[in-house]
Design a protein around this nucleic acid. Structure first.
Lengths: 214, 214
DNA sequence: AATGTAAGCGGAGAAAGTTCCACTTGACCG
DNA sequence: CGGTCAAGTGGAACTTTCTCCGCTTACATT
């Protein structure tokens, strides 16, 4: 069996910048059709109606194709959030302050969390679908990793020596505040207003960033 | 139709203490059989194998019976955690300090979170199953409500005027640290030790409870 | 004991998620 | 232009969750 199962082609395992893997024409067509269909179902009948079968049928495509492209239901939800996610990443990585570079790190962190909450307000249910598949789905996503790395970097700027504690853990703690399930619960079950939630996160952020209490 | 659909018996809508709804013998037998079967499957083949069909088959009972008793898969997982949950509640409501009454509220909160993490260490996957059904399942559970009320009460003891912020929100923020998904991610994906996680929550608790930083 | 009745039961089946694999097709290369 | 073949496709089939409803049975009453 030695060597019989290895990859022998020269194509890179991951896409390489400047030399992107070409997407076949039929695949591209289907990608558009699927996203269009999914968005239509979502708008017409809500998240609960967003089933893989339905999307496949509406896009006139086999279910297998849906799974090949998105992996699972969470992946589909994620893809629908992709535009929004991209814009968000751009905003916090290179946009205008206070979210983007230029503002003090504390302010950027606060702006980050506030922005995230606004996103949950508009797409909370879709976030929930994207995150709920498996217990750790949320954390495994590229979006989570990027957000976490961003927070860690900001924490490092304010607290290079790590006196405030474990930056990785702190980032997880901050991001736990913007869990889609928690948000929906606070908003719907508890009836919290957006303002109340934002005020709450501010208190937590201030507490964690070592500022004096009022 | 007037009055034709009304309840006319004298039995209370909810169980009344001291006069419990009698459980039929067959129902009791099945309850035991189901929990035994579920525990056996869990031990033998792990959480993933814990399907409703399998439990029903192993207990020699129809699926309908499983659903009648537990509601859904999350409910079954929850029932399996019930013993542990009961012991935990007893410990923080009326057990020995620092978890139970007697210790200062800050210490009780810290003990609460540490204890919770120990529970996640032994039953994290089951917690995950119990919480993951729907986005807000975790928060809708009685266990969550009880834990939250407990934290809120402790916060009220240390900070009766609410100077530290919204106690309800703070309780949610603290409980977000012991989300089963987050725990499993930190433990397995990030490889954090129990000690590291506990040290992390301590920093957060200290920050939120207005203590001076070291 | 006989009887009434609601609680409980069982399992067929609907619905959704996911896998699998034989077949088709687009892109590239000579 | 024709051959090659991995990428892509479709949809049957399997799994699992959950619902539904006609039937059974434990328990209370008489």
């Amino acid at each position: 069996m030695a060597g019989s199962g290895g990859r022998s082609d020269d194509r890179p395992l991951l896409p390489v910048a400047g030399q992107p893997v070409v997407e076949r024409a039929d695949a591209a067509r289907n990608r558009v059709a699927l996203l269009t269909a999914a968005a239509a179902i979502l708008e017409r009948d809500g998240v609960d109606a967003l089933s893989m079968d339905r999307v496949a049928a509406e896009a006139r495509v086999g279910v297998g194709t849906v799974y090949r492209r998105f992996g699972d239901r969470g992946g589909l939800a994620f893809a629908l959030l992709d535009d929004d996610e991209r814009r968000f990443q751009e905003a916090f990585l290179s946009g205008r302050p206070p979210l983007g570079p230029g503002a003090p790190p504390q302010a950027r962190i606060r702006a980050f969390v506030h922005s995230y909450i606004d996103r949950l307000e508009s797409h909370g249910e879709l976030h929930a679908v994207a995150e709920i598949r498996t217990a750790t789905a949320r954390f495994a996503s590229g979006a989570y990793r990027t957000a976490r790395a961003h927070i860690v970097a900001l924490l490092h700027q304010v607290d290079p020596r790590g006196d405030w504690g474990d930056h990785g853990y702190l980032a997880d703690a901050l991001l736990a505040l913007v869990d889609a399930g928690l948000f929906l619960y606070q908003r719907r079950e508890l009836g919290y207003s957006l303002e109340r939630i934002k005020a709450g996160v501010d208190v937590v952020v201030d507490g964690l960033l070592g500022e004096r209490r009022r």
